[in-house]
């Protein structure tokens, strides 16, 4: 049993030192040397931007650490303090998780990026010919249009591929029914973003019609992607807010969020992070470095930092 005894000894030693290590009261003036924990999610622009922001912090003399995290659950982690910042809070997809966490306390709204976001149903540009009248939503009322989007399991109706149910629940099916398109169209939930991109690639090869859920800024912007123009969004028009659901998605914010202790522990970094503001073009360029130029996320971040030194140096003053 020497192995078990050895392990017990190791546990004890580990615990003793862990207890010691929590005593880091020697706080210097300025930023703490504790690492800033930056979450990475599973889409390219976010990961690259995480490394870009990490690089900026490092240039400022901070320590950084990256942790893969789920994009919805991350706000709870920030609240508890497992993660320090979030740099892409999309209004339509994560607004609800974010505001819930905000109400519970422990997380701070740290300002908006310059980029505006749109998340809605749309189609790659080459599909336009299959449904004359797009991008106006009334074109969808035409049965001849719907029949170009039929799939084997759609029961003869046109099929729209919505993202995972996690993202906005029943919003799109409710909208389709509210607009009276329910007889011609059916909404299918994909299981992941991968499923959306696979559908996009497959539809292109096959040259068939497809309407999918997508967002901008995204790597698809480059190849041409148009969002359907639904009736404009007004506050309270969604069923969950008591409205009739006959409206599209809002022109949304892209926010930054931080753990409530961050400004106290890292005042310098927090100040820089507050000033950070990326534009749609910059975010698109980051995503394109990975998705189109096939660079790794780290390399893309390095290249972006090298190419845009004037941009981020300005935030550091």
């Amino acid at each position: 049993m020497p192995m078990i005894i050895g392990l017990i000894v190791l546990v004890v030693i580990g615990l003793v030192f862990f207890m010691q290590s929590t005593d880091k009261s020697a706080k210097k003036a300025g930023d703490s040397a504790e690492p800033i924990v930056i979450p990475t999610h599973n889409w390219s622009s976010q990961v690259v931007m995480a490394y870009v922001i990490g690089g900026i912090f490092e240039a400022n003399g901070n320590n950084v650490k990256y942790v893969p995290a789920d994009s919805q659950a991350v706000y709870e982690s920030i609240r508890i303090g497992d993660v320090t910042i979030s740099h892409e809070v999309w209004e339509s997809a994560f607004g609800k998780s974010f505001t819930t966490a905000l109400d519970k306390g422990g997380i701070l709204d740290w300002g908006d990026h310059e980029a505006r976001t749109l998340e809605d149903m749309g189609y790659p540009d080459w599909v336009a010919a299959k449904c004359p009248g797009l991008p106006d939503w009334t074109a969808l009322k035409n049965p001849d249009c719907a029949k170009n989007f039929v799939t084997p399991d759609s029961g003869g109706k046109g099929r729209m591929l919505e993202g995972p149910q996690t993202w906005h629940g029943d919003l799109i099916p409710q909208r389709i029914d509210a607009l009276g398109l329910g007889d011609l169209w059916v909404v299918k939930f994909a299981g992941s973003a991968d499923a959306l991109w696979a559908e996009l690639a497959a539809a292109k090869k096959e040259d068939r019609g497809t309407i999918i859920f997508n967002w901008t800024p995204n790597f698809t912007d480059g190849a041409g992607f148009t969002f359907i123009k639904f009736p404009p969004y007004t506050a309270g028009c969604r069923p969950e807010d008591g409205g009739d659901g006959k409206c599209g998605s809002p022109d949304g914010y892209l926010k930054k969020a931080v753990n409530a202790d961050f400004p106290k522990t890292h005042p310098g970094a927090a100040d820089i992070f507050k000033k950070m503001s990326f534009s749609t073009g910059q975010i698109g360029a980051m995503a394109a470095l990975v998705d189109l130029d096939k660079m790794t996320h780290e390399d893309a971040a390095k290249k972006w930092l090298a190419d845009n030194e004037s941009v981020w140096k300005a935030w550091m003053n």
């Binding site: 290590s21 210097k28 003399g61 320590n63």
Partner: peptide, 11 residues
């Protein structure tokens, strides 16, 4: 090493 000392030490 941080576990035995601190982030300040490592920096």
């Amino acid at each position: 090493i941080v576990a035995f000392t601190s982030w300040n030490f490592v920096s």
